[in-house]
């Protein structure tokens, strides 16, 4: 049986992890390669690296980091942040990234999804969607959630599936950072209306939240950052708790 995936997300700026990492006895908590290896050993199913560098220099450093991660880490990983062209994706895949995640650039030019799927295959095209529920309706937001649009979450998700996205990474801005649980109602709707995997993101705070997003939210994978980075939830214990609830996981 295909298992549900647990995905730690690392924010990268100029080749280093940011947003404090504070678990186990790391020699260098800022080194993404050391962290990635550690997460792979601790039972993470996949990793996501989000590049938040604002400079060209920072982006170049990102490619070097991707190469080092691919050299040393034996589980799949996705790279996102600031990707807007075939050339960007080509460079990342050539450095050994398994998948790329695109967000604002897909909204600005939806044909990018088709072009990437045609050239590199749907399996490596993750479309990340940040959305906020306003008066009952979910609206897509751009640029890390700072720019609202009038695009409906579900319409957009269906459109990118049709265009060749292999997976959707949905972050609920209402839930992100609250540690009050994932946006399971919206996730379940996405999962039933689309036929590609859905990754839940935003709101993880407790083990129960993961149980809920896989059962109520029908998510295929769950992504989180701080609960893993600060050792609040250990991946192995989380997976054992999921297994007890008959949720298929890789242990």
């Amino acid at each position: 049986m295909l298992t549900k995936r647990i995905i730690p997300c690392l924010d990268i700026k100029n080749g280093r992890t940011v947003k404090g990492i504070n678990f186990v006895n790391l020699i260098d908590a800022g080194d993404p390669v050391i962290l990635a290896k550690q997460y792979a050993d601790l039972g993470a199913d996949e990793l996501v690296f989000l590049d938040i560098s604002a400079t060209l220099e920072g982006r170049k450093t990102m490619l070097e980091m991707v190469l080092k991660v691919a050299e040393q880490v034996n589980i799949p990983f996705t790279v996102g942040g600031g990707i807007s062209s075939i050339e960007d994706v080509d460079a990342l895949l050539k450095c050994g990234a398994d998948k790329v995640s695109i967000n604002s650039s897909a909204v600005k030019r939806p044909d990018l999804v088709n072009e990437l799927a045609d050239k590199f295959g749907s399996q490596c095209v993750v479309v990340a969607i940040d959305a906020k529920q306003i008066n009952g309706e979910w609206f897509v937001h751009l640029a890390g959630g700072t720019i609202p649009t009038k695009i409906n979450l579900f319409d957009w998700a269906k459109q990118v599936e049709k265009r060749g996205a292999g997976e959707i990474l949905f972050t609920s801005m209402n839930n992100d950072g609250t540690k009050a649980g994932f946006a399971n109602e919206a996730l379940a709707k996405l999962s039933s209306e689309l036929n590609i995997p859905i990754i839940a993101s935003g709101g993880a705070g407790t083990v129960q939240h993961f149980i809920d997003t896989f059962t109520v939210g029908k998510s295929d994978a769950a992504l989180a950052a701080s609960v893993f980075h600060f050792g609040e939830i250990a991946i192995l214990e989380l997976k054992e708790a999921l297994k007890k609830k008959n949720i298929p996981v890789r242990i």
Partner: peptide, 13 residues
């Protein structure tokens, strides 16, 4: 078929 999500993506035995 469309009974399952396609692609199959992740860890299986």
């Amino acid at each position: 078929s469309k009974v399952v999500k396609v692609p199959q993506m992740g860890w299986n035995v």
